[in-house]
Amino acid sequence: MSCSEKYIAFMHDYLDEDITEKKEQELREHLQTCAACKQHFDELKKTIAFVQSTSHVKAPVDFTANVIANLPKEKRKVEISRWFKQHPLFSAASLFLILMAGSLFSSWSQNEQFSYSKQPNLEVENDTVIVPEGEVVKGDLVVRNGKIQIEGEVQGDVTVINGEKYLAGAGKVTGEISEVDALFEWIWYHIKTTTKDVLNLSEDDQ
């Protein structure tokens, strides 16, 4: 058995595909003469063949789903951005809404200054617009961030945004009088006037 130690080491080198040509040659020659080593070598090769022949197993079908289900919660940001990627129409719609809302709010906050429709024969005292007694204003009247006091006559609609109106006993408004206070009403008003403008435009076209 004294020969085997050396040759068994050679055998393993051979099986690891890490053997010099010279050693391989020596091993081959030895195996032809030594039955014990030949048997050992055959057994090693058989063992490897057995291990390699074991049937390949596959992961269960729901494996990946189970892994994903058990991962720590994904960042919300990514979830949302992926959702948008999958729904391009919605992305376009929401972008539109955001821009619309943005312009609406900015026009709301920009208009915090006192302003009113330029009409002849109006008097202004501080932040109060006065329709003097006996005067007739032809056309609509809009007052923002101020008060209106009607003592004369307005032939048209009166709208007060973020303000108050006083209608004197002698005052007269032929159209509608409306007050817009809350932001929501402001938006509603905005939509109404825009629609009206659009309608007027299309009517003009005809």
Partner: peptide, 19 residues
């Protein structure tokens, strides 16, 4: 942070690792 991308990686290696 995309977990779906990780799912694809798992698909690639699951059999080897399970084996």
């Amino acid at each position: 942070g995309d977990q779906n991308a990780y799912g694809e990686i798992v698909e690639l290696y699951k059999d080897k690792i399970f084996q």
